[in-house]
Design a protein around this nucleic acid. Structure first.
Lengths: 182, 182
DNA sequence: CAAGTTCTGTAGTGATCGATACAGAACGGT
DNA sequence: ACCGTTCTGTATCGATCACTACAGAACTTG
């Protein structure tokens, strides 16, 4: 009951995600959001809480989308297959023209905790898929492989933001894969 | 002639660099700077111009210091030696406790142009030292080697900021080096 | 000493930040 | 039709932003 909301909450959330993705959290003001979302500030606060809650919800939406690179490559068996699948998804995703370039999580200073979680998740994923436990050889150690992949994804994300095209990213990924055992 | 400046301009510039490095450009306010530098706002503006000019001067100071990774590894001959030297310097530098973690240039959104310049400089450096011109093999192409190194440096910088220790960074670098031919 | 110049702190500029008080509008339940 | 509830826009809150007008203090020069 009560007066119904005049705007589509999900569409507004997508708009907010788009803005945060393009400009970052700090650089996106409430005024920017109300303009892009086509609603007034009180409606925004009533629907989403405060700015940070809106950002967190947008990030959750981002992470829930099939863009997620972390769990890509489930089909692989060897470390190279697993990391290769992740890099493939990333290279395509980071220059996709349907949305801003790069990865929202990997290029947001305020999401360091999510990056840590992603690295841990990647390490567990690699260990599970390849069946390899901790190993002194960096090429066989799931934690090192995950940290390597994670660092590369961040580098690819930043390169995409700085203007690199898909072919350049693909060459980087191809070269990087040579470090990883079959 | 006239009243002499009461503070050390170079020391103040170092303090400003420290703050920008820790917090980033946007997150560092003039109030933060006047507090850390121990001077009032008019003195700061008289000495450095405006906030962006102060930032640019601090970045120039940063790039002029021997921290620069881009030109490291001049001694090397093979791509692996050149990149290995760069990664060695970076791994040590990014966790050095004498200053904030990571690389100021690689973690500042407003310095995308400097990153592009660094990538180009690295490519020229690799080409000159190894004597290799453009090559279809990613492992022999200076531009791809430079882009790979650049992406890795950004990933290492971000990982250091997110809390990775020197040993972790070293393992990433060791693994990455396996991608690069002798 | 006095004049000229430059730095100093106090205090405040307009603009923008995130966030809200308030009143009217639009609905469901009775 | 009326009431309670919830959303709506207007208009504004205090805080903070980058930045500066102003006047006195501290120096060099004559």
């Amino acid at each position: 009951m009560g007066r119904p909301r005049r705007f589509d909450r999900d569409a507004a959330l997508d708009q907010a995600l788009q803005l945060f993705w393009e400009q970052g959290y700090d650089a996106t003001s409430i005024a920017d959001l109300t303009r892009a979302l086509g609603i007034s500030a009180p409606s925004l606060y009533a629907a989403f809480g405060d700015k940070r809650a809106l950002f967190d919800e947008a990030v959750a939406r981002y992470e829930a989308s099939p863009r997620s690179v972390t769990t890509a490559g489930t089909a692989g068996r060897t470390p190279r297959e697993v990391l290769g699948a992740m890099l493939d998804v990333a290279v395509r995703e980071y220059v996709d023209e349907d949305h801003p370039r790069g990865c929202l999580v990997n290029s947001s200073p305020e999401l360091a905790d999510r990056r840590a979680a992603n690295r841990a998740a990647t390490a567990a994923h690699v260990a599970q898929v390849t069946g390899v436990a901790a190993d002194p050889d960096p090429g066989r150690d799931p934690a090192t492989l995950a940290a390597f992949a994670h660092a590369l994804l961040i580098g690819l994300s930043s390169s995409a933001r700085d203007g690199a095209d898909g072919a350049q990213l693909a060459r980087i990924a191809e070269l990087a894969l040579r470090a990883v055992p079959e």
